[in-house]
Design a protein around this nucleic acid. Structure first.
Lengths: 360, 360
DNA sequence: ATGAAAGCGCTAACAT
DNA sequence: ATGTTAGCGCTTTCAT
């Protein structure tokens, strides 16, 4: 193993440009008190030598690590990767996060942490001691884990909480769950549906509540009842099956169902098929989460896109801004989500009202 | 911005245990020349204080960075993420890579690099200067980029080349492309097919050639001709459409087609539908790459699983072994891939021979 | 088997 | 506006 030292250091640049280390440091950190001519001379030496500062050395001298850590739930993330269902949270995070980080000279690293477990704190402390990140992005369900939030607050480190609207330390950023649920409900109402069911998400996620709230609010505004139209779920396919069965077994069963994620939407589709209900002829379905499986389902499903990349990108922007200016962002951010119409939603078939299956 | 210093350093541990820094260093690095009793005493102090070494400080003193860099092609990776088609290379890389790294106290970082471009070298040098990784994992098409390989070789850094079988510096690791192609061909021959077509992958990837070779070899072994049964492709859906049309427009068109990736397989399915061919009644299809879209297609497709996670995991193991022992692994590694049968493959329908569509 | 001293590349604090 | 000095936390010599 050859000892791999930095090939070209700030010293080389300094001697090449005939200035002190400090002046070079000022140039690379874009600090004041350097005359333009001098700045130019130093920059030229930097370019000529191909100098790039070492992150490790910068961190050592008590400055930035230029690292932003994305904290994801270990069990969930691994399960998602293993299922290969294409609900590619981490990929979308990296898409938004890495590219935005790169624009500011930062890098993004993914770290897996167990939400449940008494050792969260130790795990976090270890990751921080090893990596010393400058900022952190929390994803659900970490975004609302009081232990994690308190830890980050104590560190005095800027962080974003994705999927949370709670006040408190850290910037809360959501993907407008309530608004999306309202828009989905609106779409169905516009198609003539009146009995619109909703399968909720895991109560561990506050966004589940917000989606349910949005649906209830929109139904109420249209003067429609939600009695017997809510079924609980926990984001698993199995819970989707159970809830779809429960909703559709009723006398006055819904003519449309909104599922709080993609797997439960696929479950609704499966149940509809089993009950010989045509989608969208007899039953309209809308999925929260526009994953590959949803798009390739038969029929392709109307879905709400989760703008994960855009959300993480904004989170990074906030963190870096706070790092630079020191001012905390107080207000919550809400990233709009698109509703994509496909073939799982259709006008309510009148024929069904007289009890006859199928159309005229 | 509070100055964030290391909370507990090697100094704290040393004074807590009443030994010198050096002894603590020996313990955490598992070096010899420490008496068991002393080792234990130090370890206890480490545990009590929750000490974790700083990666930056370690790197600074000319030792490891405990970082393994995964180099992915920028354009391709971003396009994959944006398409959201669920062919989740990076996710699977992280699944295999991060977890294996963690077992050895390493971390994995993803870095995007342009394969084409005169500035590859500068980009690489910058990433290395900033991050100083201990090892690198090259993914296609980087795995066969001579500029990148030469650069890494000059650095004297251990690296793996995924998807390459070429000799040279770095450990070549493939997912047994040739064997998988043979097995897919075998399956179809076993079902009675004789005219088995193949749509090749981009010639920029050597694995494309290996897949084609496997198919040709297996056909030859069964005494079957491949005349007019090969169509070129470049992994895009569009190229899949063109090639499927070309193959199926012939008089003596194939009764089965193997597509060198998932998108082209989906294209074959679309073309079959347009030509009123039943899958698998009139045409069997096998996809290289078992992505979500392939599994949710109508019908769900028989596919070859790309064991990306396992492959990257093995790559990490090799790199860390080389880091520890200093000995290079010479032989190429071949990770077996599973062939998953679904409903896009079926026995050759005899009825079709007399020109009548459908079965008896 | 253990310890002491030097230095890695950089920045903060303090000169000038 | 520029330079000098003193570490940051750790590992590598080199003593003992």
């Amino acid at each position: 193993m050859a000892r791999r030292r930095q090939a070209v250091t700030i010293k080389h640049v300094a001697s090449d440009a005939g200035v002190s280390l400090q002046t070079v440091s000022r140039v690379i950190n874009d600090e004041p008190n350097v005359r333009p001519a001098m700045r130019e001379r130093v920059q030229e030496a930097i370019d000529r030598l191909g100098y790039v500062p070492s992150i490790a050395a910068r961190r050592m001298s008590g400055s930035r690590s230029y690292l932003i850590l994305a904290l994801n739930d270990r069990a969930r993330t691994i399960a998602d990767w293993q299922s290969r269902e294409g609900s590619d949270w981490v990929g979308q995070m990296l898409l938004g996060g890495m590219l935005t980080c790169a624009r500011y000279g930062y890098r993004m690293m993914v770290e897996l942490v167990d939400t449940h477990a008494d050792h969260v704190e130790r795990e976090l402390a270890a990751a921080f001691a090893a990596l010393q990140p400058d900022g952190v992005i929390l994803t659900p369900p970490h975004s609302e884990n009081p232990v994690i939030i308190a830890f980050l607050d104590r560190q005095g480190i800027p962080f974003a909480r994705i999927g949370s609207r709670d006040a408190g330390p850290g910037v809360p950023i959501t993907m407008d769950d309530e608004g999306s649920a309202r828009r989905a409900t609106q779409l169905l109402i516009g198609l003539g549906h009146q009995r619109i069911g909703l399968i909720g998400g895991s109560s561990e996620y506050s966004l589940s509540q917000r989606r349910t709230d949005g649906w209830r609010a929109e139904m109420a505004q249209a003067g429609l009842s939600t009695d017997g139209l809510f079924a609980p779920g926990d984001f698993t396919y199995e819970s989707g099956l159970a809830s779809a069965h429960a909703l559709l077994a009723q006398d006055d069963s819904p003519t449309a169902i909104i599922a709080s994620n993609d797997r439960m939407a696929l479950a609704v589709l499966a149940v509809a098929e089993k009950r010989k209900l045509c989608v969208p002829g007899d039953l309209s379905i809308i999925s929260f989460d526009n994953s590959a499986a949803v798009r390739h389902a038969q029929p392709p499903m109307t879905a709400i896109e989760q703008p994960v990349a855009e959300t993480v990108s904004q989170a990074v922007e906030h963190i870096i801004r706070e790092l630079k200016t020191g001012e905390k962002q107080a207000e919550a951010v809400r990233v709009p989500a698109a509703l994509i119409e496909r073939q799982s939603t259709a006008p309510l078939a009148k024929a069904r009202d007289n009890g006859l299956p199928g159309s005229a």
